[in-house]
Simulated assay, not measured.
Amino acid sequence: MVRELKEVQGIIFKRQKYKEADLLAKIMTKNDGIITLIVKGALRPKSRLSAATINFSAGTYVIYTNGHGLSNLRTYKEVKQFDGLYQDLTKNAYASFIFDLIDHAFVEYQPLGRYYDLAMFALKKINDGVDSEMITQIVQMKLLSAYGVEPQLAHCVICGKEKGIFDYSIKMGGVICNDHFGVITSRMHLKPKETAVLRTIGLLPIERLGTIKISEETKKATRKAIDRIYGATIDLNLKTKKFLDELKLF
Rank of each mutant, 00 (worst) to 15 (best):
L144S: 07
Q110K: 15
L73T: 04
Q87T: 08
G160F: 01
S47Y: 06
G41T: 00
F243P: 07
K220W: 00
I138W: 03
L5D: 07
V62K: 11
S145V: 14
K14M: 01
S57I: 03
A119W: 09
E78V: 04
M188T: 08
A51P: 01
A42G: 14
I38H: 03
I38T: 11
I158S: 09
I38W: 02
L43S: 03
I11S: 02
I98T: 05
G174K: 07
G173V: 12
I212A: 00
I38D: 00
D117S: 09
K142E: 05
N92D: 01
E246P: 02
K142G: 12
G33V: 09
I11L: 13
N31L: 11
G59L: 11
A154L: 13
S96W: 04
E4D: 03
V62Q: 06
D131C: 04
D22L: 05
I229C: 13
T211S: 12
T53C: 08
L5A: 06
G210I: 03
G10I: 08
T195Q: 06
A225I: 06
V139T: 14
Y116N: 03
I206Q: 09
D179F: 01
I229P: 08
K80E: 13
I226H: 09
E246G: 08
L118F: 01
L249D: 04
P192F: 05
R74C: 00
Y230A: 09
A25V: 06
Q152L: 14
S57W: 06
T60I: 15
E133N: 02
A58L: 04
